[in-house]
């Protein structure tokens, strides 16, 4: 894992500015939640870290290495999407082993690694299944295993729980949160759900209109919001958060 540094990243598409001077550091082993309403630039920020967007200005660095112009396939970044995006032409096990295959790792070894990861996520027996036969929660676990298999510098999660039912979401949130801290993963967790962000992330970055409004621990963001926007956005669901233990 690595330390991720975004320095004054700006991204413009023609006349519109999607990301407007974002600076953020994610420490090694830390999970930072990027929280904000839709269209605030959080997904663009994530895509910039992954390498699918080249910033108009500013730099992205992994540890001390500037990766601003490194193509996505050479960044060693794990991606987990809301849509799962599993490869239907492969089994569950092959999905998980895909990244290792791209790195030229021998078949037996990548199979072993895939099985380990699937076991760790509690779906070890599904390695030979067709991913389309799995439930939403199971598919998301496969997506997570696939991203973790390459031992990424950073794990990027784009609304991974959206679309799952509340009960499953709560369970997966606990499990995945535990797993990520156990594995000491450096992660960016994009979500519009503040409850999810507060429970799963070490720090939260609140974004609005392409800018970082506040970066801090869940407690800081919740108790002393830096701007009016943060205060409004975060307090909206606050009564639902009595179970957050400080």
């Amino acid at each position: 894992m690595a330390r991720i540094t975004l320095d004054s990243v700006r991204k413009r598409y023609g006349e519109t500015t999607a990301v407007n001077g974002v600076s953020l550091t994610v420490d090694d082993g830390e999970i930072v939640g990027v929280l904000g309403p839709s269209g605030c630039g959080k997904t663009t920020t994530l895509r910039t870290v992954a390498g699918f967007e080249t910033p108009t200005a500013g730099t992205v660095a992994f540890d001390d290495q500037d990766v601003t112009n490194v193509p996505p396939e050479n960044r060693n970044v794990g991606l987990v999407f809301q849509e799962y995006a599993l490869f239907d032409n492969m089994t569950v096990g092959e999905n998980v082993a895909f990244g290792l295959k791209m790195r030229g790792i021998a078949k037996a070894k990548r199979r072993k690694r895939a099985t380990e990861l699937l076991d760790m996520l509690g779906i070890g027996e599904m390695a030979d299944r067709d991913p389309t036969t799995l439930s939403g929660g199971q598919q998301q676990r496969v997506g997570l295993a696939r991203a973790l298999a390459i031992e990424p510098n950073v794990l990027l999660l784009d609304e991974p729980m959206t679309g799952l039912d509340a009960k499953l979401k709560a369970r997966l949130r606990d499990e995945v949160g535990e797993l990520l801290s156990e594995l000491d993963v450096t992660g960016l967790y994009v979500t519009h759900d503040q409850e999810e962000a507060m429970l799963m992330c070490d720090r939260i970055a609140v974004m609005n209109d392409g800018r970082m409004e506040q970066v801090g621990t869940p407690r800081e963001v919740y108790e002393s919001p830096a701007t009016e926007f943060v205060s409004e956005f975060v307090s909206l669901d606050a009564p639902q958060l009595p179970f957050v233990q400080w």
């Binding site: 895509r47 996505p72 960044r75 970044v77 490869f87 895909f98 990244g99 991203a147």
Partner: peptide
């Protein structure tokens, strides 16, 4: 998403 997953996993 499929394309980005594969690219991030190291496929050209």
């Amino acid at each position: 998403r499929l394309e980005e997953s594969a690219r991030s996993l190291g496929a050209s």
